[in-house]
Amino acid sequence: MPSPRNWREIPARYRLEAARCRGCGKVVYPARRACPACRGQEFEKTMLSWKGKVVTSTVVQVAPTEFQMEAPYAVAIVETPEGARLMTQVVDCDPGAVQPGMEVALVFRLIRREGHGGILCYGFKAVPAA
């Protein structure tokens, strides 16, 4: 990921910054210009909780080149208490144990690296809730 793009996404990736629509109250992650529910354009900044529940998941055995060292790894759609849904890896456990309904905590981790000389891209991953 090129450096400017990674930099632009820091608030959402590092701090889970989201937007709450002033019109309908929907929490949109990451922030957008228009609300996907009511098309409102007035938002207030809100932070997602660093926890959630698995909606659905898989274990990626055949990974893209950049992620091959980590395979097999679990990826899940996680819903936070605010109702936002995000896709994330679930780590620090047996990937096969990740199933819908599982409670997770979100933690700050290295997500990908741009080769040996490029930038390091950080963000969130899920781990089993304590």
């Binding site: 898989t58 990826v75 890896q89």
Partner: peptide, 15 residues
Amino acid sequence: FHGITFPGLYAMIAR
């Protein structure tokens, strides 16, 4: 960004 693949997305749909 998070390492999901197309088989992965459809696997989530399947699950």
